[in-house]
Amino acid sequence: MLLAQNITLHRSGKEIFKDINISLGDGKIIILKGKNGSGKTSLLKTILNILEPSSGLIYWKGKLIYKNINDYYNNLTYIADKTTSLRQLTLYENIKIWRKIFLSNVSYDQIKNILSILKLDNYLNQKINTLSLGETKKFELLRLIIENKKFWVLDEPFTNLDFESIKIIEQTFLDHVNNNGFIIFSSHQKPDIKNVEEIILDKL
């Protein structure tokens, strides 16, 4: 579904990455690995069509992504390394806003179940700025379920998470790819999931 051919990115005259090839389709997971500053986030932003590659082409369902951008974005969820939830509002208010903005058909009961799995159900009426970094990250990842899209793009999804939470996220990834979803994410640690394709940016 997503095909990136020989993409190269230069920023401020500096080569960030060169000749990267990515092929992503149903049931596939790709992990981007590399040192800090190796260009993982830039590659994700290039895939998202936020940064324009210096050379190379990216296709979505056989068409160039900028010619098929609406369909591409309709099928994509991006979780950045920041928290997009509104820190001055409660978890419940944020969920309400997300459900409305993303026109989500995921019910509140389903969301409550996931919150209890993530052990966030007791904080429903607390403001985001009272949560710890790990709890905020887990709450941010809830957006994957609320948006309910096929293609997940995640930047450092395991940062600040404890071992138990990482296991839950790994299981969520597996469930998603078993339902024909596909994922690309950057991380310093390799998840405990079989058949994950690695792209290492340090080699470049």
Partner: peptide, 13 residues
């Protein structure tokens, strides 16, 4: 801008 909401809104049409 700082919390990334602009990107998320952009990716949502």
């Amino acid at each position: 801008f700082e919390n990334g909401s602009l990107i998320v809104l952009h990716l949502n049409g």
